[in-house]
Computed example of a mutant assay.
Amino acid sequence: MIDKDTFLGFCDEALVAMRDIVVDLGDDLANQRPALPGANSPFAILTHCLGVTARWASTVNLGEVVPRDRDAEFTATGAVDTLAADTDAMRASLRDWVARTDPAAPPAAPTSPRQDWYAATCGGVLLHVYEELAQHRGQLELTRDVLRAGG
């Protein structure tokens, strides 16, 4: 069974680290894409993470739809201060959604079981949220490094 406090600690650490990277880069670098095929900007990566978190923790698990335009996440640009505030708001929303989630229960709005095997329980869905945050945190760290190196 998933320990909610530990789960939230891991997610919070990832979201804060990503927020801080984007803020540290500033508006100019945070909105640039590395010169690599298919690369995303730091701003887009974090925007995507906020969309992932809302979709899975709220829409899928609780059936409370949070509007999302997944395609637009990858082209998102804007002020890093606004994205930092949105990240902090998402951290608070995630705490609320997790508090109201029964990890052993099936999701309220299940996805395709063939494709999303981990979504058989709300706990599996929450682990997927952290999986996404962890992998995109690494992607964001590498993206930051490439941009700072002039690439």
Rank of each mutant, 00 (worst) to 15 (best):
K4S: 14
T6V: 14
F7W: 09
L8R: 08
G9P: 06
V16M: 10
V22T: 14
D24H: 10
G26L: 02
A30E: 11
N31C: 11
P37S: 12
P37A: 13
A39K: 00
A39H: 12
A39E: 10
N40F: 00
N40G: 06
P42F: 09
A44Y: 11
I45E: 02
G51Y: 10
T53L: 00
A54E: 11
A54H: 01
V65S: 11
P67F: 00
A72G: 07
A72L: 09
A76Q: 15
A76L: 12
A79R: 15
D81Y: 01
D81P: 02
L83N: 06
D86F: 02
D86V: 02
D88F: 09
D88L: 04
A89F: 06
R91F: 00
R91E: 00
A92V: 11
R95M: 04
A104R: 08
A104V: 08
A104K: 11
P106S: 15
P107S: 13
A109Q: 15
P113K: 12
Y118K: 13
A120Y: 03
T121P: 07
T121D: 10
H128V: 04
Y130N: 08
E131A: 13
E131C: 04
A134N: 12
Q135S: 09
Q135E: 00
H136P: 01
Q139D: 05
L142I: 15
L142T: 06
T143R: 02
T143Q: 12
D145T: 00
L147C: 05
G150L: 00
G151P: 02
